[in-house]
Amino acid sequence: MSLPLLEVDDLHVTFNTASGPVHAVDGVSFTMESGDSLGVVGESGSGKSVTARALLRLFAITDDVRIAGSVRFDGVDLLRIDERKLRDVRGGQIGMIFQDPLTSLNPLMAVGEQIAESLRLHRGMGRSEAAAEAVELLGRVGIADPERRATELPNSFSGGMRQRVMISLAIACRPRLLIADEPTTALDVTVQAEILLLLDELRRSEQMALMLITHDFGVVAATCEDVQVMYAGRLVEKASMVHLFDRANHPYTEGLLRLVPRFEDAHTGRLHPIAGQPPITGGGGSSCAFAPRCSHAFDRCRSEVPPEVAVGPQHLSACWLAAERAKDATEAGRPWKRDP
């Protein structure tokens, strides 16, 4: 028997703000095994980034934040170890990359040196060994002429190259889990394509698990086998990517999938937006958070939180109509796809 690599159980993250508590993450549970690739999809305020940050307690000192639940990584509850031990995990066993690589890199330090520093710290390498490994890592993430570029400062790199540097820093200590928070949102599509392929290749070659946080189903489709959709701090649907495309169950997932103008279609009339806007105060209510925007909502949705229901193999949906919708989907085929 083996423990899962990552086991998140009933995670709650609450920010105390001037205008009252905000339940950014409201009871999220999931597991990941080594080599898994999980896409977390949601809009801003859905709690997808906060979930990732909570795993490593990466919050600003000024944030008044309360985390509850458990995050077991390799059997150790990360929420209950002290800050010093957690620092070993951060950048050691769990690597992380962000949307804007520039803010995560020290602007006054050559990139090779920054990677080497991390190697000395986490892998106990000697000075010259670490420097050589840094160059090797830069080469591995596709940076041409790595010896020369290792000596340059972050701002002499383009956006895509900076993200590569960030990735090489994140994988420097052979993490077992790489968390990528909107890693390509700030990049152009052709650069995004390269970065996504790089992440996919690294996951396979380094045997690490990849958790990719994004608002774009296309990005997930290119890099992840599993996907979970978040809304207002809760998981609303969880499935394998292939399965989700065929059988999106939750009305929110369905809405997300059909509101993006599909590339293959020419102008075919108006889009189908989801009315209203996502709540900004997070979850925490005693109703389905999506009910106000949902065209299928009925009384029960407004009075009780729907539980996660299994609607297929490895497929969960938190909707009172989940079972019913799953049956319809089987009969009608892809419910979110427009008529042929």
Binding site: G160, T190, A221, E264
Partner: peptide, 28 residues
């Protein structure tokens, strides 16, 4: 290259990006 690079929400997404990589080389 530009059109192929757009990640689409379907099962051929990864394969398409491989094609894109061969159409847009190097850096701007």
């Amino acid at each position: 290259g530009l059109i192929t690079s757009v990640p689409r929400a379907d099962t051929e997404s990864a394969a398409r990006l491989q094609t894109a990589r061969r159409l847009v080389l190097g850096e701007l």
